[in-house]
């Protein structure tokens, strides 16, 4: 994975995992790689990897079971919320881009509805 070195790396890895949860690449209740394995998988510092799980846990997206590892949340409601959060983020990024091009929100909505 190619990182943007100007943004916190834990945030970028977290984003990746969130996307994989929403898209179903990682199923609810699925076991996630251990901290060290995550670090090796993404080529990141182990402390960064630990931070990723801390933040995912804080966001209610995964849970650590003592002695067993870290698992994707089984809470379908939470995953649905996440889907909406991520979609909002995408829309927001889109809006910023559209705005910088001098296109109004209404025009943009029209364009979207005309798209196949």
């Amino acid at each position: 994975m190619q990182f943007d070195p100007m943004r916190p790396i834990w945030l970028q890895v977290m984003g990746e995992i969130e996307t994989s949860i929403v898209t179903g690449v990682r199923a609810p209740g699925e076991k996630l790689p251990g901290g060290r394995d995550l670090a090796m998988l993404y080529g990141i510092n182990p402390n960064t990897a630990a931070r990723v799980y801390q933040e995912l846990e804080k966001a209610g997206l995964c849970e650590t079971r003592r002695g067993m590892g870290t698992f994707v949340t089984g809470d379908a409601q939470r995953i649905t919320e996440l889907r909406i959060e991520l979609a909002r983020q995408a829309v927001q990024e889109f809006m910023v881009k559209i705005d910088s091009l001098g296109v109004s929100k209404e025009e943009a909505v029209k364009m979207i509805s005309e798209m196949e």
Binding site: F3, P5, I9, R36, A39, M40, Y42, G43, I44, N45, P46, N47, T48
Partner: peptide, 25 residues
């Protein structure tokens, strides 16, 4: 990364700065 752990110190020098962005903390 495999051999980095809580009880170890890793010190890497490099002039290939980009190579170390994600590895070092």
């Amino acid at each position: 990364l495999q051999f980095a752990s809580e009880d170890k110190i890793l010190l890497l020098s490099s002039h290939l700065v980009e190579e170390m962005e994600a590895v070092a903390d």
